[in-house]
Design a protein around this nucleic acid. Structure first.
Lengths: 369, 369
DNA sequence: TTCCCGCTTTGAAACGATTCATTCCTTCTC
DNA sequence: GAGAAGGAATGAATCGTTTCAAAGCGGGAA
């Protein structure tokens, strides 16, 4: 009598399978039939092996790999409510800064068999919004987010909707959110102090859109520094705002930089990519770095040390940031004892050739001929 | 008011997550109840709006956003069999080469509301295997893969199991697989020819593991070039094999490079990251580039042009590669008329300072003092 | 013999959507 | 007024798991 069911089903599926490629996936049901046990037992072998007798377990396992059964996560998820999926929403996947963060997060999460849904917003709030929606439809177990907007509305909304969320590179303590971040105000202060210490008086800040919190904070840090510097002598800060934190935008900012009055003798950038662009633009304009213009970046991306000239930058612990954020999220997702925490790292200034006046070490090759 | 922050944080965390998120998610059923229609009608409003009368549709839509209903993809997927998810498996997310590819693929796929499951194997076959498994459990609609192993067994297996797969940066025509790739043999020939044309006789190839196909092909290209060069004069190629295609491994290779007999006067690298490392190592060893050692990379990553000295490299159309691969996959996934195709791009040599002997343009700044 | 007690195994009921054969209404035609 | 046509809405079945109350089975105690 049991046989009639499957046989019928088989027939109907066979007729439905007029396309060869539409061969149906193996289900737990077929495994059960082959091993001559109930589907409940198969499920137990998968999730709860200890309650199944050794012989039965053997039979089921054999059936599983002779049928090449692969568990369907969707069905699992539907029943259990966990998707084993983490959404990662960041500003720009092409930025090595974020890449390092992702690496850190992935290393933590892959060990727990989570898989990352990666979304790059390109700093568009609209795109961010769409991604949040899609990720919620997928019922991600948690979210790592570097938000586009300066307020944390969107992130707070996510949490309110029941999605565990950890902010990336962004402090969330003011809104009771989990976060792993670096003190941006402090970092910018380090950079600006450094320039003023070198004797520069007019410095410029090439900054990204004010919608992005990091840009606001870094400006604030620079502002504080300039205010301190002013106590002893004349010091000025000019901001040049560009549309995005990219190399091209940095290069484009050079025109404004050179046209500024008073002409700055040093420039700090909200981001290494911007700094890369500025360096390129200055080279094209024939402006010597650091002699005519000192440059400091932010993030200390791997490539900063290899540029020509090597770029001074504010180092952020990127990989560690990703690890910390992922661990925090995992804590919340797995329901471990947890209270919302804002992990904070300290930035560190790395001084290199782009802001070191002299002596410039002249490459041997240039001296010999 | 800033002081209130930490206190609030504590409070919200205490009550916060556990209880509040225990509220059940809204389902189509509740929407139906609220709108006083059957669940079938709600589903129709979502997927087939034209068959629903305007007034009913209105009522349902109102119910949807007053309940904040968000469709559950898992349930959808279970019924329909599509997950709107694409797996992307690549060697190293920290390599800007892959990052650009991902960007291209994402731009194509996000418009169709697909989301990327990103997996970086770090060149480990074992990790790759685990990721394939997890992605299959998730029933990804398709896969973009840059495989670790030189044979295409694993990729062929995926296709055999019914998962549409497109190879990234790897030709699949020999196995009837879809792929978007660049001719690596040709690219390496370009690089080696260039070096021999400059008059170098002993050149070295810093290469990655022979398991990786790209490394095999690039070596083959170099081999062909050296063979051609030998017809006219003495020419030699030495291979230095490292464990991974990373900056650190490139730097580590420098010792072997300088110890090689006959000592090479030029080196080409399987990869820009390796080349970056080699440059760094050479700088540390006090070897002038390009005077004492010319260097050519591979990929022409964005940063190659900004290094000190700027790096000659073999350009690959990275973004376009990602776009092409994604479009190919989409074609297959959506069941559009499709036959397996291997899209091939042409590499292009970009010559920069690291392999340009002289005249070296001396920066003005160095001349003036 | 009966009863009880663990240890295994079973099978039906979720989970939240989509699908499709039916039913229900109107309107129109003859 | 009967019947046809067709547009809307219905609701049960289904997708592939997990879960859990219940049943089956030996064996030991009374």
């Amino acid at each position: 009598m049991n046989r009639v069911g499957p046989a019928e089903r088989r027939r109907s599926s066979a007729s439905g399978t007029d396309r060869a490629s539409a061969k149906r996936r193996v289900t737990i049901r077929e495994v059960a039939r082959l091993a001559q046990v109930s589907i409940g037992t198969v499920s137990n072998v998968l999730n709860n092996p200890s309650v199944v007798s050794a012989t039965t377990r053997r039979r089921v396992l054999d059936a599983i790999d002779s049928t090449r059964f692969v568990r369907n996560t969707a069905a699992h998820q539907l029943r259990v409510g966990k998707s084993r999926t983490i959404g990662v929403v960041l500003l720009d996947i092409a930025n090595p800064f974020f890449t390092e963060i992702v690496r850190g997060a992935e290393h933590v999460l892959r060990d727990q068999d989570y898989v990352l849904m990666l979304c790059s917003t390109d700093e568009s709030a609209n795109r961010e919004h769409r991604y949040f929606r899609v990720l919620e439809e997928h019922r991600v177990d948690g979210l790592l987010v570097c938000p586009v907007d300066s307020d944390l509305e969107s992130a707070v909304a996510l949490v309110a909707r029941g999605i565990p969320t950890v902010l990336l590179d962004r402090d969330g303590s003011s809104h009771g959110l989990c976060s792993a971040a670096v003190d941006d105000i402090r970092g910018a202060e380090l950079a600006a102090d450094h320039l003023f210490d070198l004797g520069h008086q007019a410095i410029a800040l090439v900054n990204g859109p004010a919608a992005i919190r990091q840009c606001i904070d870094r400006k604030e840090g620079a502002r504080r520094s300039v205010q301190r510097a002013r106590r002893c002598r004349s010091a000025s800060l000019q901001e040049i705002v560009v549309g995005a934190l990219t190399i091209d935008q940095g290069e484009a900012a050079v025109a404004a930089l050179l046209a500024a009055e008073p002409r700055p003798s040093a420039v700090m950038c909200a981001n290494d990519l911007l700094a890369f662009g500025v360096l390129r633009g200055l080279a094209a304009a024939g402006v010597a770095v650091p002699e005519e213009m000192a440059v400091v970046g932010y993030d200390d991306v791997v490539f900063a040390s290899m540029l020509s000239p090597s770029l001074s930058s504010v180092r952020q612990p990127k990989y560690e940031l990703g690890v910390a954020a992922a661990e925090l999220l995992l804590e919340e997702v797995t329901g471990a004892p947890h209270e919302h925490r804002a992990i904070r790292f300290e930035p560190e200034l790395v001084v290199r050739a782009s802001s070191t006046p002299r002596p410039v070490s002249v490459p041997r090759a240039l001296l010999s001929p």
